[in-house]
């Protein structure tokens, strides 16, 4: 191979440097916004440090772990700020407390009528008093979800929405979609007489663009504390599956 003359090497290096600088100018700047960690390290890393301000949808079927993630986020936020839950009648405070939510800082907004939900949500977000607002699925149009997503982004709040199906969101909305899927049950014992449900494993797949990772992350939600004595554990096992599945679903 012929040796490359020095001026040409310099020109090539300068060209590469220029190319790099031009590419850097168009690359989105690293986000400086405040993120809310869910305290699930794998998930936090995958979504860039935590839940962002704006709309975060948790999509999936019943018992797919959506509630477990939502409650973790509520618990983390309630340690430093107020959080709100729009309650359509199914709020079960013991499950929230068990997940670590500080009930003193949880505003439970009773919304009996569907028509009032959007107005209550709008009022809550505009007031800027809550770091996280949690709402269950509603058959709203993408335009309404888009409006709330922008509002939440502007006010620095995280709007956590539990959806049964995928959100048809227009491009450009500040939406982080997390698709949850139940994978397996965790049993103690041998699964026969005397065996009990200990927890369930599920996977979360971030669907937003420009995330560090889009591969599904496997998580496991346990129902029982391992330190519980055997007698209590067996008692919990009798009641825990029904209650916890309901609370987390």
């Amino acid at each position: 191979m012929l040796p490359v003359p020095a001026p040409q090497r310099n020109r090539e290096a300068a060209f590469l440097s220029l190319k790099e600088r031009l590419a850097a100018a168009h690359r989105p700047a690293p986000s400086q916004e405040r993120r809310l960690p869910c305290e699930l390290p794998a998930l936090d890393t995958a979504i860039g440090g935590g839940l962002p301000a704006g709309l975060v949808t948790l999509e999936g079927a019943l018992s797919s772990g959506r509630g477990a993630i939502a409650f973790r986020a509520l618990a983390a936020a309630s340690r430093s700020a107020f959080v709100a839950l729009l309650d359509d009648g199914g709020c079960y405070p013991p499950a929230l407390a068990e997940a670590g939510v500080l009930l003193e800082r949880l505003l439970i907004v009773p919304v009996r009528e569907g028509g009032l939900l959007a107005r209550a949500l709008d009022t809550l977000l505009r007031s800027r008093v809550c770091r996280v607002v949690f709402v269950r699925a509603r058959a709203w149009s993408a335009a309404i979800w888009g409006r709330f997503a922008r509002l939440a982004r502007e006010t620095g709040s995280t709007l956590l929405a539990l959806l049964d199906g995928p959100l048809q969101a227009p491009a450009g909305l500040p939406v982080l979609r997390l698709r949850c899927r139940g994978e397996r049950l965790v049993l103690c014992g041998r699964g026969s007489v005397g065996g009990a449900l200990l927890g369930f494993a599920f996977s979360v797949e971030p669907l937003a663009r420009a995330l560090p990772s889009r591969t599904p992350i496997s998580l496991q939600a346990m129902l029982l504390r391992e330190a519980a004595p055997l007698r209590e554990r067996s008692l919990h096992a009798v009641r825990a599956p029904q209650r916890t599945l309901r609370a987390h679903a």
Binding site: L107, L116, R128
Partner: peptide, 26 residues
């Protein structure tokens, strides 16, 4: 959060929903 903002939000929600915002206690 400013206290007054919270008071305004609570009053506004109560006005809207017809019942107060609640807090759970175990």
């Amino acid at each position: 959060v400013q206290r007054q903002d919270l008071a305004v939000a609570l009053a506004r929600l109560e006005g809207l929903l017809g019942e107060p915002v609640r807090r759970a206690r175990l």
